[in-house]
Amino acid sequence: MKQVVLITGGTQGIGLGLAKAFMARGAEVAVCGRSDGPLDAFSREFPKALAIKADVTIAEERAAMLDAMYDRFGQMHVLVNNAGRFVERDFLAADAVNGLADEVALNLTAPISLTSEVLQRWPALQSIIFVSAGFALISPARAPTYGAAKAGLHGFAEGLRRQLARHGTHVLELLPGITDTPGTATETRKKMTTSEVAEITLEALAKKKPMALPGSMKLLPTLLRIAPEATRRMVAEM
């Protein structure tokens, strides 16, 4: 039986890298996104996959997306909560919290809500992947609300992993380092490719690890144990 995988925000970046990696292993893949252009491009390149236009922050659109999944596949084995957005905020500025509700909805509330809705329909789900960030462990100075949302997602993944363990559902948290995506186009630091991140993620998934830690993130938990203050200062200013 082929795995059926849903990846939110799967038309570009890490989500697209994961979609390609799952398809290369024979999985049936569905992705969702909010923009017609990337969805159309995905459908042209991967005509056997399912591309769904949906805003995961809107309950009705999440429901319609899961209806489309059921109509096409009848089942789901893996949910990848990937959709998210990095937002810089200066809290000395007057507009510091403009759009805050939308940011928190996309980065935290939506993946929690979608996870609940998927489990109601497919309680025997094999795996849930949350695409988080190293900033879940150390909040960045330039984007403290992003760090707060990712820290919340990290806590949710950790608790959910314990809750679902007895039911056989594996919960994996992906903490990618800097990756070559449209969002990091102006970055000059060395970046991992999305295919490298995807391969490490699927390897961690196969081994039922709690975390996938690509590249520089592999050392982060250890550094936080042995040199917590220096590590926090270094990462927080990235």
Results as ranks from 00 to 15, higher is better:
56 V>A: 02
59 A>R: 15
43 S>I: 00
156 F>G: 03
108 L>W: 04
89 R>E: 02
36 D>N: 11
158 E>P: 04
72 R>A: 08
173 E>Y: 04
150 K>S: 00
87 V>Y: 06
139 S>I: 01
65 M>L: 15
140 P>G: 10
45 E>P: 04
139 S>W: 03
121 R>Q: 10
119 L>S: 14
108 L>N: 01
165 A>I: 10
139 S>P: 09
98 N>D: 11
136 A>H: 04
53 K>G: 13
112 I>H: 07
170 H>M: 11
92 L>G: 14
128 I>D: 03
160 L>P: 05
96 A>G: 02
69 M>R: 14
155 G>E: 01
169 T>K: 03
161 R>T: 03
142 R>Y: 02
168 G>D: 03
61 E>H: 00
46 F>G: 02
130 F>D: 05
65 M>F: 04
62 R>Q: 14
147 G>Y: 00
84 G>K: 06
114 L>E: 02
156 F>C: 02
125 L>E: 13
152 G>T: 01
127 S>G: 14
122 W>D: 12
87 V>L: 05
58 I>C: 03
97 V>R: 01
168 G>M: 06
153 L>D: 05
171 V>A: 13
172 L>D: 01
90 D>I: 14
160 L>C: 09
64 A>R: 13
165 A>S: 07
132 S>I: 05
68 A>Q: 15
115 T>C: 10
61 E>D: 07
53 K>T: 14
174 L>I: 07
147 G>M: 02
66 L>P: 12
166 R>G: 14
42 F>D: 00
50 L>M: 06
73 F>L: 11
151 A>Y: 00
79 L>S: 07
82 N>M: 08
39 L>C: 02
128 I>A: 13
109 T>P: 10
71 D>T: 13
119 L>C: 14
141 A>E: 09
59 A>F: 13
138 I>C: 13
53 K>N: 11
164 L>H: 12
137 L>T: 08
165 A>F: 08
173 E>L: 09
170 H>Y: 04
168 G>Y: 04
99 G>N: 09
82 N>G: 11
45 E>L: 03
58 I>T: 08
168 G>Q: 10
102 D>K: 07
72 R>K: 15
157 A>K: 12
135 F>V: 06
124 A>S: 15
136 A>W: 00
166 R>A: 15
66 L>G: 13
138 I>V: 15
154 H>R: 09
84 G>D: 08
50 L>F: 00
114 L>K: 08
107 N>E: 02
64 A>W: 04
61 E>K: 00
105 A>Q: 07
112 I>N: 09
83 A>Y: 02
139 S>D: 01
158 E>C: 05
178 I>V: 03
124 A>D: 14
173 E>Q: 10
153 L>M: 13
72 R>I: 05
133 A>E: 08
143 A>R: 04
124 A>P: 15
160 L>I: 10
121 R>V: 08
80 V>H: 08
